[in-house]
Design a protein around this nucleic acid. Structure first.
Length: 439
RNA sequence: CGGGGCAUGGCGCAGUCUGGUAGCGCACCUGCUUUGGGAGCAGGGGGUCGCAGGUUCGAAUCCUGCUGCCCCGACCA
């Protein structure tokens, strides 16, 4: 993409409403614009990141055997009355009336709807287990939206729902999502730590929040330092195998957020030098809730003895739009964003230091064509801005690689390849630079 | 929902106290000179001063009501 043809509105100054760093950088680097409190429009640059995160989340859900569906944003109030949550959910739920005066709502989550869908489609235990997920916009009318996209009212969430015959079988479904979350966050370039969370009606240890450490996080968290570099299951993980050992390894070390934190246990179980007390951002939450929705909604299957049994369910959320902010919180410096390569909107920024100079233009056009042909995502700054402005813009928007081309280097057949994360730069020939970027 | 604050061109702000017909920096447009870490000079375009009502010869400025947004707290993917 040529910057001269792109829509990338950069702000040189911090908008005054943006308090935390990810919000500031998202506005400055032209990822989003606020439409109203807690509601954002995604501009081309931010939209690319959102889609890349979504893709990784989808790939890892699919790998774990979950099946993608797409449920609507607008739901009828009926199902929510049956589950009893129409009254329980409170002011956070945005209620709407249609022209016939029917009660509708903008979905804050989808347990009711998915349970209804599943009930209509499944009769027999032979069709279990199943896990259905979708990636859809939600609306929760937060009392106080803040931190940009991190606590918006409208947000993009992946939510999955598992259906099993028994609680024991449900545990395996839960473990699958647990493992898939470890892999998902790793691929997003994040160190996410599963932490015991409030367990809800069923009890047990079947609820975890996945939290990444960042100074600006909303929650205070405590954990053993070994969790930070604990190895994540690789591509060869077999989701049909017993995942209990993996889950046990990850949950045997102490990790808790503020509300579940037990200082005495923390000090007893974790040696002083291994204790980490930090701020964290919740990017995922999984929990098992048994028959909480299947019972009131009549979602039953026949078991092997012909008896009707309410299915056992869990739900599993990842805040996709929140992750854009969370990744920036975890990966930036004074100059701007530093995108992990897996979610970067473009892999490389090509900087023409002297647009309008025939030789430099020719070299850049040639490099741009070669990168494009090799399907390497490149943002080519072909504008007539001065070099300094281009450098600053490129640092701000945080593409992993900068390929810097100017007449001075070209005279010796050299260009400069700079890595955004370290600032380290090398001079090399155009072919070598292209070779490195293709690797 | 309690407490605090803000609203003036795309962004950041001054002007409001003390009423007199809107200004600065950046951005934008034109030209010239420049060009390896946010260039200089000259010229130029753009504002219902959040909305409604009131006071006044005259309102960005004073009064009343409303709306939007931000921050702190309690609550949450």
């Amino acid at each position: 993409m040529r910057r001269s043809r792109y829509f990338l509105p950069i702000l040189r100054q911090d908008p005054k409403e943006a308090e935390i760093v990810s919000h500031r950088l998202m506005l400055r680097a032209g990822l989003v614009r606020q439409a109203s409190a807690g509601i954002y429009s995604w501009l081309p640059f931010g939209h690319r990141v959102l889609k890349k995160i979504e893709r990784i989340v989808r790939e890892e859900q699919d790998r774990a055997g979950a099946l993608e569906v797409l449920m609507p944003t607008i739901q009828s109030a009926d199902l929510w009355r049956k589950s009893g949550r129409y009254d329980d959910y409170g002011e956070e739920m945005l209620r709407i009336k249609d022209r016939h005066d029917r009660d509708m709502l903008y979905g804050p989550t989808n347990e009711e709807l998915i349970t209804d869908i599943f009930r209509d489609g499944v009769r027999s235990y032979r069709e279990l287990p199943r896990n259905l997920y979708h990636i859809q916009w939600k609306f929760r009318d937060e009392i106080r939206p803040r931190f940009g996209v991190m606590r918006g009212r409208e947000f993009l969430m992946k939510d999955a729902y598992s259906f099993d015959l028994s609680a024991q079988a449900g545990r395996h479904s839960y473990n699958k999502m647990f493992v898939s979350y470890l892999r998902t966050f790793e691929r997003l370039g994040l160190k996410a730590i599963p932490m015991a969370a409030e367990t809800g009606p069923i009890g047990g240890d079947m609820s975890h929040e996945f939290i990444i450490l960042a100074d600006t996080g909303e929650s205070q968290v405590y954990c053993h330092k070994d969790l930070i570099d604990m190895a994540v299951p690789g591509d060869d993980i077999d989701y049909d195998s017993d995942l209990e050992p993996v889950v046990r390894r990850w949950t045997s070390l102490y990790a808790a957020s503020d509300d579940e934190h037990d200082p005495a246990r923390f000090e007893r179980e974790v040696p002083a030098e291994a204790r980490i007390s930090a701020r964290g951002i919740e990017v995922g939450h999984i929990f098992f809730f048994g028959s909480k929705y299947s019972k009131p909604l009549g979602c039953v299957v026949q078991d092997g003895q012909g008896r009707n049994v309410a299915v056992e369910s869990g739900s599993y959320g990842i805040g996709v739009s929140r992750l854009v902010g969370a990744i920036i919180e975890a990966s930036h410096d004074g100059a701007g964003i530093i995108w992990p390569e897996s979610v970067a909107p473009f892999k490389v920024g090509l900087i023409n230091l002297k647009s309008g100079e025939a030789g430099t233009d020719r070299a850049c056009d040639d490099i741009y064509a070669k990168l494009s042909n090799a399907r390497i995502e490149v943002l080519y700054d072909d504008t007539s801005e001065r070099a300094g402005a281009k450098f600053n813009t490129m640092d701000l928007i945080g593409l992993p690689w900068q390929l810097i081309v100017g007449p001075r280097g070209l005279a010796d057949g050299q260009v400069e390849l700079k890595r955004r994360s370290t600032g380290e730069a090398v001079s090399l020939s155009i072919d070598d630079a292209l070779g490195r970027l293709s690797a």
